[in-house]
Amino acid sequence: MEQGVRKKSKVTTLVHALSFINDGCVLMFGGFGGVGNPPSLINGILEKGVKDLTLIGNDAGFPEIGIGRLVSAERVKKIITTHIGSNPCAGKLMVEGKMEVEFCPQGILAERIRAGGAGLGGILSDIGIGSMIDNGKEKIEIDGKTYLIERPLRADVAIVHAKKADTFGNLVYDKSARNTNPLVATAGQITIAEVDEIVAPGELDPECIISPGIYVDYIVQSKGVDWKWAWE
């Protein structure tokens, strides 16, 4: 940088990034049906042996794809999600009482994450009143209409997957793999971005940046979906 204080790069090793994800962690993840899940971070969590996770994200993935691998390996004690139908392992664990599932309508889940990232106290919704979604939630009446108070969602660690990042942490996503990642990136006490390509500051088109680097704490280079990582 020609002027001011040179900013420190946020690029780190996978091992260092995984040091923030430990037993009992509340882990929020980006992705939709595995697309947009960060594969190297998920591999690393499995190899590290992290367990008793509380997951927050759109779905339970597939048994051997994306975040679903953590569910199938019985590393998850609770998941807050919109559906689990694509992962039979999740349904089995729920029925057996081995994993708690909190269902949330997709739009409401997204808004609860947005509220968490924005520091709001929650949102109001009329969806699910009198159904299993209600489940004893607080209600408020405004102009004669009843709403559920939906609490914001935040996590100890948020993990996202992007196509490109500069060393400041500005993120560019790949088409539909963008999905919930921009919301998730805002809602972690620590946000870790796994990216396919890391470039120098100034190399990203500002018009293509979706997640500003202010939300991202660490960046790790992705090894790809088929990468096999050994914990050493």
Rank of each mutant, 00 (worst) to 15 (best):
K139H: 14
P152G: 15
K175C: 08
K164T: 11
L148D: 01
K145V: 05
A158G: 10
I149Y: 02
D166C: 13
A162K: 11
D166P: 02
L171D: 04
E141M: 12
D143P: 00
T146D: 04
F168Y: 10
V157P: 07
L148Y: 11
G136T: 05
D174Y: 13
I149W: 04
D166S: 12
P152C: 14
R151V: 11
T167V: 14
T146S: 08
T146R: 13
L171T: 06
I140A: 03
V160P: 07
I133G: 02
V172G: 00
F168K: 00
T167G: 12
T146G: 02
N170A: 12
D143C: 07
T167R: 03
T167C: 00
I142L: 13
E141D: 08
R151L: 10
D143N: 13
A155F: 01
T167F: 05
I133L: 08
A165M: 04
I140W: 02
G136P: 06
V157E: 03
E138Y: 02
G144M: 01
P152R: 06
R154E: 14
H161P: 05
K145P: 00
K175R: 04
L153F: 15
T146A: 03
A165G: 07
T146M: 09
E138F: 01
D143R: 15
M132A: 12
K175D: 13
H161E: 13
R154N: 14
K139L: 03
Y147H: 08
K139M: 12
L171Y: 00
I140M: 12
D166R: 00
L148E: 07
I140L: 04
D156W: 04
A158V: 09
I142N: 10
I133E: 03
N135H: 02
M132Q: 09
A162C: 13
Y173N: 05
D156G: 15
K163C: 00
G136M: 03
I149P: 00
L171Q: 07
G169D: 06
K164E: 14
